[in-house]
Write a protein that binds this DNA or RNA. Structure first.
Lengths: 214, 214
DNA sequence: GAAAAACATTGACATAAGTCAACACTTTTA
DNA sequence: TAAAAGTGTTGACTTATGTCAATGTTTTTC
C-alpha cells in the first residue's frame, strides 16, 4: 500500500508504523452519489480519501444543501468528530467514483497518538481544516454573490471547463439563476468572455479584483 | 501566578513547567475598546485571556463588523495564526477592561511543544475553536434572523439581563431594528415576556425550539 | 440635575437574492 | 435517432433583512 504514504498525515511514518496502520485499516470503494456519513451519525472510523472526490454539506431549514467543502485525494476526513466523540456535524457524499482508506479510530488513538510526530501532523491537519472553515465564513458571510463569483473566476478559472453552471452554483451556495445573471453582467461589462465550450477567459482582472474587495 | 493554572491549556503543567512559562510571559492590562490585534497583523505572541471580555470580528465590504466570537477568561486566543505564521484572520477588540497573559510564542514552541501533554492540550484547544467556527457557520449560513434570536434566547437567556439590545444584535450579526421587531413578534405571540429591567422569560419553549428548527 | 449621548421602537422604503414559470438548448438514455 | 432528462436563460414576482428617518426613552457625563 504505497498509497498510504501519499497521505500527508502519514507521509513521515516508518515502514514499521505503516505496517501497523495497515492492520487497522481497509480500503473501501464507493460510487458517485453514495453517502459516506450523514450529519448526526456517530463516527467510528477515520477516513482518508485516496481517489475521487467527496463533498461535505449541511442541510438548512428548507432541506437545501449548503455546500461546505470538497475533499480531494490525500484529505483526512472529519477528524474533529472523531476526537470529540460527537456526531458528524455535516453529511459527506461522493461526487465521483472514489476510494477511501477506512481506519479504525480507536486503534489509531491507542497506537499512534503518543507519537509526537503524529500529533504534530494531526495539529497541522486541524489547522488546515480551520483555514477551510474560516474561508467558508469569508465566502458565506462576508461576500456578496457577485464577489463570490468573481473570487471563483479568479481562483478556479479552469473549473468552468469541466463543471456545469449548476455545479458551480451549488459550490458557491447560490442559485443557478443568480450565477447566470451575474455571468451575463460580467460579459456585457467586458470583464470576461465565455465561448461555446463553456471556457471562461478573463478580460479585466483588475475589475474582478475590485468586485471581490469593493 | 496562580491564575495561569486556571487556563485550561496549562492546567496540567508541573510547577517547574509553570516557572518556565512565567519566564516567557507577561500580564498586560487593556481597557474596553482597545484593540489586541487587527486583521492582517503578524502574530508574535500567544494570548490567554485572564480577565474581561474580548470580541473577535471580521470587517465586510461595507466596513461593517461581522461578529465571530467572544472570548471569556481562560480562553487561548488565535493560536491558528501563530501556528501557521499567517496574519491574523480577524480583529480582536476588548469589550470590557481586561487582562491578558502575553506569551512569547517562539519560546513557547521551543520549550513546550515536545511535551505530549501540551500538544494534546493544543489539539483540544484547536478542536474547541473548530466547534466555534462550525457554530458560526451554523448561525450565519443556516439560520434565519428569527431562528438566531430563538437560539440565543434558549441558550443565553441570562445575557438579556446584562446586555443591551444593540450588543445582542451585534453578536447575532443582525440590526437592532430586526432584533426589536422579532422580539415584539415573539411577545405578541406569547412566546416570551420582557419586563422593565430587560429581563426575558420564556413562556413557550416548544415554540422557540420549533422556530429554531423549522 | 441638566445637557448630551446612547439606545429602542416604529414606519416607509430599498435591495440582494431566491422563487417560479416558460422556453430553448444539450446531453443522456433506450 | 427519438424521447426524456437535465441545463441555461430570462422575466415577473416574493421575501427577508437592511437602511434611513423620526421620535421617545434611558443612561452617562459634567
Amino acid at each position: 500500500m504505497e498509497r498510504i504514504k501519499n497521505i500527508a498525515c502519514f507521509a513521515n511514518l516508518s515502514d514499521e508504523q505503516l505496517e501497523k496502520l495497515k492492520k487497522i485499516s481497509v480500503i473501501k470503494k464507493y460510487n458517485a452519489k453514495e453517502i459516506l456519513f450523514y450529519e448526526g451519525d456517530t463516527p467510528v472510523y477515520l477516513y482518508a480519501l485516496l481517489k475521487g472526490m467527496l463533498k461535505v454539506y449541511k442541510t438548512n431549514f428548507k432541506g437545501q444543501q449548503i455546500f461546505l467543502h470538497q475533499f480531494y485525494p490525500g484529505g483526512l476526513v472529519a477528524e474533529l468528530a472523531n476526537f470529540e466523540n460527537i456526531p458528524y456535524p455535516a453529511t459527506a457524499e461522493f461526487t465521483s467514483n472514489s476510494e477511501v482508506l477506512r481506519i479504525d479510530y480507536a486503534s489509531l488513538e491507542k497506537d499512534f497518538f503518543k507519537n509526537p510526530d503524529i500529533s504534530m501532523e494531526i495539529i497541522k491537519s486541524l489547522i488546515a481544516k480551520h483555514k477551510i472553515l474560516i474561508e467558508i465564513i469569508q465566502k458565506e458571510v462576508i461576500l456578496t454573490a457577485d464577489a463570490k463569483i468573481a473570487k471563483f473566476i479568479l481562483e478556479n478559472l479552469e473549473l468552468f471547463d469541466t463543471l456545469k453552471n449548476t455545479q458551480i452554483a451549488s459550490i458557491l451556495n447560490i442559485t443557478p439563476e443568480t450565477l447566470s445573471r451575474t455571468l451575463s453582467k460580467f460579459k456585457t461589462a467586458s470583464i470576461i468572455t465565455i465561448d461555446e465550450r463553456h471556457h471562461v477567459s478573463i478580460l479585466d482582472k483588475e475589475k474582478l479584483e475590485e468586485i471581490l474587495s469593493a
